[in-house]
Lab assay of single mutants.
Amino acid sequence: KITVTFNGEEKARRYYKKMQKHNLKVEIRVENNQWVVHVE
């Protein structure tokens, strides 16, 4: 499981979509004013 933190929504969403293309289970959320993407 990987957790990647971004300081911008745009970058986070781009990464999220990229990971989805690989058929990975991805989850995006905001934690402590940071955009966090969890990849299983």
Rank of each mutant, 00 (worst) to 15 (best):
K11N: 14
K17L: 14
V30C: 14
F6E: 01
K21P: 02
T3V: 11
R14N: 10
Y15T: 01
F6I: 02
K17G: 04
N32G: 14
Q20M: 13
V37L: 03
I28A: 01
N32S: 05
N32T: 03
N32L: 05
I2Y: 15
T3P: 02
E9V: 08
K21G: 11
H38L: 14
K21L: 12
R14D: 11
N32M: 06
T5D: 02
K21M: 13
E10K: 13
I2G: 04
H22M: 15
R13I: 10
V36T: 07
Q34S: 07
T3H: 05
N23R: 07
K17M: 12
N23V: 04
Q34H: 09
Q20F: 06
E31Y: 07
V37F: 02
Q20P: 02
L24Q: 05
E10M: 11
L24G: 04
Y15R: 02
T3N: 04
V4Y: 09
N7G: 07
K18T: 09
V26P: 03
N7P: 08
Y16D: 00
K17W: 10
E31T: 06
K25R: 10
E27M: 08
F6C: 07
V36H: 04
M19Y: 04
E9W: 13
L24E: 03
Y16T: 03
I28D: 00
V26S: 03
T5L: 10
V39W: 06
E40R: 07
A12V: 03
M19N: 03
K1E: 07
F6M: 02
M19V: 05
E9K: 09
E10Y: 10
K11W: 11
I28G: 00
W35L: 02
Y16M: 14
V36P: 00
N7A: 11
V30D: 03
V36F: 07
M19F: 04
H38P: 01
K25H: 11
E27C: 11
Y16L: 10
K11R: 12
M19D: 01
L24I: 10
H22S: 09
K18V: 08
V4N: 03
K18N: 08
R14E: 15
K11T: 13
E27Y: 10
E27A: 07
V30H: 14
M19P: 00
E10G: 09
K25S: 09
K25V: 09
A12F: 06
Q34K: 14
K17C: 15
H38D: 12
N33S: 07
V39G: 01
A12D: 01
G8L: 14
Y15W: 07
E10A: 14
R29P: 00
K18E: 13
T3F: 07
E40H: 11
K1M: 12
V4H: 06
Q34M: 14
N7H: 09
K25G: 05
L24H: 09
